[in-house]
């Protein structure tokens, strides 16, 4: 664990929990994918979900912005509250929810449009800009936040698909933050990237913590240790352990967590 970067883990900036899940169960058809998970996720924090493949961490992540709605067979039970509002309330429009809870996917998926249009897409559909100048400003701000501005400012009208893998992923992050979300969900955002691009994105995630509650699913324990303040360990659909990241990695309470950390399962 030498590569653990000591980051600011003081919880003084933490407020009340941003997301609280209570007794969440997910079924895919007959498969019981998530079993009674309850968790409180704080604002301005990076929370990592770790665990072996198929443990349910991505599924749980997709519950937080109701992306599971797009899968016909998925059923979600239990409560997930964001800012105290149940997002599975029938009155909640998932579209509105997703504007508030942005998501970055495993594989960079820029739209086959220009870089500018990629970033401007969200603000346009949500009506966040009053005029072109507003929109330009949002695009620039988002690209700057995603640390892509310097690389992209001269080629805003070029297709986003022409960027390198790491740049594409940062473009997707810029796209997600352009809608001014409060929560940013990241589903293994670095799994398709090379180490240099990964380092850039990780650095970015740490900065994003200032403004958002970031939830990241990752395969790599090192990554979880590097970027997150809180870590949740999932195993076979159960939330096994949830605690401060350094505690999970140095002094896990559950034997399963320990086996996973030390590489015996996974």
């Amino acid at each position: 664990m030498k590569d653990m970067i000591p980051v600011d883990r003081k919880m003084s900036t933490m407020q009340d929990s941003k997301i609280s899940a209570r007794g969440v169960q997910v079924y895919y058809g007959e498969t019981h994918a998530i079993k009674d998970v309850s968790v409180e996720i704080a604002d301005n924090t990076v929370t990592a979900f770790i665990g072996p493949s198929g443990c349910g961490k991505s599924t749980f992540l997709r519950c937080i912005n109701r992306m599971n709605d797009t899968i016909d067979t998925a059923r979600v039970m239990g409560d997930i509250l964001i800012d105290g509002e149940d997002i599975y309330d029938p009155r909640v429009d998932p579209v509105q929810l997703r504007a508030k809870v942005g998501m970055v996917f495993q594989k960079p998926n820029p739209f086959p449009k220009s870089i500018y249009d990629n970033v401007a897409y969200g603000p346009k559909i949500h009506g966040l800009a009053r005029n072109k100048a507003d929109l330009d400003e949002i695009v620039e701000k988002s690209l700057r936040k995603a640390a892509l501005w310097e690389e992209a400012k001269d080629r805003l009208d070029k297709p986003g698909t022409g960027l390198s893998g790491g740049q594409q992923q940062r473009l997707c992050i810029a796209r997600a933050i352009a809608t001014a979300p409060e929560v940013l969900l990241m589903d293994e955002p670095c799994s398709a990237l090379d180490p240099i691009a990964t380092a850039q994105v990780e650095e970015l995630i740490d900065e994003l913590r200032q403004s958002y509650s970031v939830v990241i699913v990752t395969h790599s324990m090192q990554q979880a240790a590097r970027v997150s303040q809180k870590t949740a360990f999932f195993h076979l659909g159960n939330l096994v352990e949830y605690d401060d990241t350094d505690k999970i990695f140095t002094n896990p309470q559950d034997p399963r967590t320990e086996s996973y950390i030390s590489g015996r399962i996974g």
Binding site: N65, M67, T70, V95, Q96, L97, R98, A99, K100, G102, M103, V104, F105, K107, N109, P110, F111, P112, K113, Y121, G122, I125, H126, C172, R175, A176, T179
Partner: peptide, 23 residues
């Protein structure tokens, strides 16, 4: 992934179709 990307940004289904899938 295109659909997910657009839906994940809070686009409605028809916006996804008209602005992402059809183009």
């Amino acid at each position: 992934a295109m659909r997910d990307g657009s839906l994940g940004l809070g686009a409605t289904h028809s916006e996804t179709v008209r602005k992402v899938i059809l183009p």
